[in-house]
Write a protein that binds this DNA or RNA. Structure first.
Lengths: 135, 135, 135, 135
DNA sequence: GTGGTCTAGACCACC
DNA sequence: GTGGTCTAGACCACG
């Protein structure tokens, strides 16, 4: 269930990307499942088709979904984790930003780790992890 | 030592805000220390004075620094951790985004926690924590 | 053995055209050989009959195959190399695109020529060349 | 000098991408050079700004150009050749397609190699190659 | 002035 | 029916 916040400063297309990736992790969308068509999705979330299209294009670039000509878009059936150096850098940067913020809010390291754990579980430690996560 | 990346998609004013907060956490800037004037800072990092000004304004809003008219800008001496509901929501959102990305990169929960720990230590567990961190 | 990739951004009809031409070059299909009927081919590769039909039409336009009403479709028996100016332009354009890409990948001219040679041989220097290739 | 063919079936944004990459190879655009602004380019080639923007976005994704906030877009100053397995596959596919076409036009292997050589030189064996091409 | 995002509406290729 | 491309016009954040 995609949920758009028009007031957010996060672009709509990015919100769509984020939420679809999350739904896949949670198992709400599974390998091979068909996504709503661009037009259907756009009417559901009352956004412009172009905006949805942009989100789908970005997801396809990340190899999270695939387009089959004239049929629609589907969750990639053989997703392979992509760990580029640049992406890793980015992740570390984001972790740093979070920790800086957390410190300013007076949150201890233990509390942060707790939050990470609980968020991690809430996103679903299901089949996705078993397949792709490096222990 | 503020370091600006013009090519980053993070706004310059935001980079300044982030890095000043980080310097305070690391103890490089301490309570009561005077920040460079807008003009000096802008020439140091070769940025537009308006941009530096915007960063200072934002830091002031967050009560991280204070401006004393005619004297200059100083690191707040009686900083109190601010934990508003909204800010907490934001933090959780950001943690979620990080974990979603990490999962798509095939990174395990343990690895993430490791990274959080190492980043946490690198930012400095000094005087700042002792004063403000809620155990 | 036609092999369709539904996920490719190359249209299915184009994939059929390309692969039939390749099979002829390799000698798997020879002058006068009968192609599977539209219906048979479409069920073999699980594609829409209209799609196969479109591919055959295109091959006919290029004089690679011929349809004899009521009998079927056959590989042209008296194929003559067609070298129109337009087609030549097109070829040069495509070579240029390849070389631009190769340069951006850091591939040397020698390596490209090597690749051209090996691909050329792999497609088969058999009877087809002897008949039609201008030395 | 970007030149758009509206009748081509190659998307306009793709034509822009191709031609800018070519201009860089030829040395007409050099490391650090500023590209025309989106608006200027769009009026020059009489295309919509969105279309130009899409081309620039794609070039940025390929790390060929960089955007500096509020200032404009520039040719990347420290370009590093990117050779991913997938990109290599793609290149080989394209070489195959070209050779199939060439064979059908009755062009000999030697002629193809000649064309590759002459196109390679025409695109410029200048500084770009010296820096990036693997001998 | 710069690029980034979004909407509205249109046309097209493909299946 | 599907997604892909393009135009026109608008608003916004950034420097």
């Amino acid at each position: 269930m995609i949920n758009i916040d028009n007031k957010s400063n996060v672009p709509i297309y990015q919100q769509i990307v984020d939420q679809i990736k999350e739904e896949i992790l949670k198992g709400l969308l599974q390998s091979g499942d068909r996504l709503p068509s661009v037009r259907e999705m756009s009417s559901r979330i009352t956004a412009n088709p172009n905006t949805v299209s942009r989100a789908y294009t970005e997801l396809e670039r990340q190899k999270v979904i695939e387009t089959i000509r004239g049929k629609g878009t589907y969750v990639t059936s053989d997703y392979k984790p992509i760990m580029e150096a640049e992406r890793m850098e980015n992740l570390k940067d984001n972790i740093k930003k979070i920790i800086v913020e957390a410190k300013y809010m007076g949150i201890s390291k233990e509390k942060i780790v707790d939050m990470v754990n609980s968020v991690y579980e809430s996103i679903g430690s299901d089949s996705f992890d078993e397949k792709y996560s490096k222990k």
